[in-house]
Design a protein around this nucleic acid. Structure first.
Lengths: 335, 335
DNA sequence: GTGAAAGCGCTAACAT
DNA sequence: ATGTTAGCGCTTTCAC
């Protein structure tokens, strides 16, 4: 019951329960292989001593850590946080621990961080996106552990992919805007630092070509993908020249910021300009007018990645290299 | 250069470099204690073999993991994510790895999760809030590792606290609203599941007493603290009876939702009703009208907690039990 | 169902 | 500056 100064180890628990160390180990890991009486004694001893297993020792011997390492670009963007929570919850339910790190959108940082994470002997790895350094692939291929890439699809996955097509999402959204009669459609975002951003821009461009319309990309450059940047982008569009019929934004924060700026400037949405975002964040649903967007499976990608990992670590076969969780174009009032 | 199927261990690197295993260990941990030539040979061998240290082994022997465990209520709320990133970045800069878990706002879950985390032998622990189960305190006090509680202040910290006073923040905000002439001020939130929510409500109530005004708390119950809930709360206030002069919301999402609902209903803000939030999320700054709120040191708490931990693990003295990072009442257009 | 012995891959302590 | 030895706390393997 009382906490102790010197760390309690398994042999202390064993002595307390009057059994061998290995029996404590079994009582904790595989209780069905221990008689009920002994099991009870061991549990009582664990309670009494306040024992917490030293997983470093177990990992060292068993070569299994029950840790899954994941790298996300940032935690600040709530959409990756959803994937992380989906992962964490599903892994926790199966006794796995999520070791989470963020790369700040840099492939080099990702490699460095993965190197550190691998030192913890994770049983599996989850990455965001499908663009990585060549050495990262080597690092992982030598380990023979399950790897799941998320948030995109890929022809050449490292191992498994759970995601959706950013390109198709943006493409279908653009077609949907055109179907509502918009012709001069601008894409507002950046092709710079991030692959998924580039995919969305490419999907837009592809749709414009298919429609026989001229693509028009408005760069936000290195600015954060935030509400404020969206507002400034709309102001920039106004300054640039005649306002397009519609604007597709890299994500819902930008679109919402643009919506606010339109309202401040007295521009009717969608009358004067139609707006669309990407991601289906809460704000897109709640804004007035509500914002047309593309719903992406943030939480589900985490859950499914976790399920894939748990099943493979349990030895179950699994032939699907790629799981496409899809997206949904959500037409709302802003377009 | 090439990755290997069988895991490379330190002795493999040593053989490759023609030195003893311990020399590789030193080259990696304390390069200044190794001659430049040997250092170069070891680095070359590490490169050539693709060696990644097994930290489980190092942790077991050295009793130091270079892991810091942290528990936040949720990652979905971007404000805790900021604290987590502040922690992660500052710890990473000093070679520590953040092991992050979320408790879902439950003290019992927090205890269970901490138990798991402690198994990884963290060198320090960071908790959110100052309300925990008694067993959690026991669990930690037996370990003699630095513990930092965040997001609140406390008379009886487990070890160290880095935070601010939620109660004072809400109290001062309420006084500021009163100073603008508002008398019938309602607090919208919940006292249910979360301590910080209760503190904010208490601060409001205390201010109202000091002002000789009657407190009026509108409960949102178990609903999520979201934009949509804020909108529904405002609708609820309207149904309930005559609208108050001003409303303090538990956080900025609620306040923003209420603002949207006011706009939909044609209620002037702050003319018909003044609104205030808590947290200073981006949306409070960007909304039209911008939202009066209380700015809290989310990222800084993470940074400072990390600094405290790194310094103590480096053996530096540190007498401040409690670091109050303060808050700032930000008066904007909504009140 | 339970136990004894061995050893996972590192690093602390003690040489040299 | 470099090496030798021992052992961290578990779990695997092999007994009984």
């Amino acid at each position: 019951m009382t906490a102790r100064a010197a760390p309690v180890k398994m042999s202390d628990v064993a002595r307390h329960a009057g059994v061998a160390t290995i029996t404590v180990s079994r009582a904790l890991r595989t209780p069905q292989r221990v008689s009920p009486q002994v099991l009870a004694r061991v549990h009582a001893a664990v309670e009494a001593t306040g024992y917490v297993p030293n997983l470093a020792a177990g990992t060292l011997k068993s070569q299994r850590s029950r840790i899954v390492a994941a790298i996300v670009p940032t935690l600040r963007n709530s959409i990756f946080a959803e994937t992380a929570e989906g992962l964490a919850e599903a892994l926790d339910a199966h006794g796995y621990q999520l070791l989470l790190a963020n790369s700040g959108y840099s492939a080099d940082a990702e490699e460095r961080i993965l190197r550190n994470l691998l030192g913890q002997q994770p049983d599996a790895v989850v990455l965001t996106g499908t663009v990585h350094t060549p050495r990262l692939r080597e690092l992982l291929s030598g380990r023979r552990i399950p790897v799941v890439e998320t948030w995109d699809l890929s022809d050449q996955p490292i191992d498994r992919v759970v995601g959706f097509s950013n390109l198709q999402g943006s493409r279908q959204l653009t077609h949907a805007l055109a179907a509502r009669g918009h012709r001069r459609i601008v894409f507002v975002g950046t092709t710079d630092n991030e692959r998924r951003a580039g995919e969305r821009c490419a999907g837009y461009c592809q749709a414009m070509h298919e429609l026989g319309l001229a693509p028009d990309v408005f760069e936000i450059g290195g600015q954060p993908v935030s509400i404020g940047t969206g507002a400034r982008a709309l102001a920039g569009l106004l300054q640039r020249g005649p306002l397009p019929d519609a604007a597709c934004f890299l994500n819902d924060y930008l679109a919402f910021g643009a919506l606010l700026e339109c309202q401040r400037q007295g521009l009717a949405v969608p009358g004067r300009i139609a707006l669309a975002g990407f991601g289906d964040f809460e704000i897109a649903r709640e804004a007035s007018p509500s914002i047309t967007t593309v719903r992406v499976p943030g939480y589900a990608m985490g859950q499914v990645a976790a399920r894939l990992i748990v099943e493979r670590l349990a030895g179950k076969a699994d032939d699907a290299k790629e799981i496409d969780l899809g997206f949904e174009v959500v037409m709302r009032d802003s377009a």
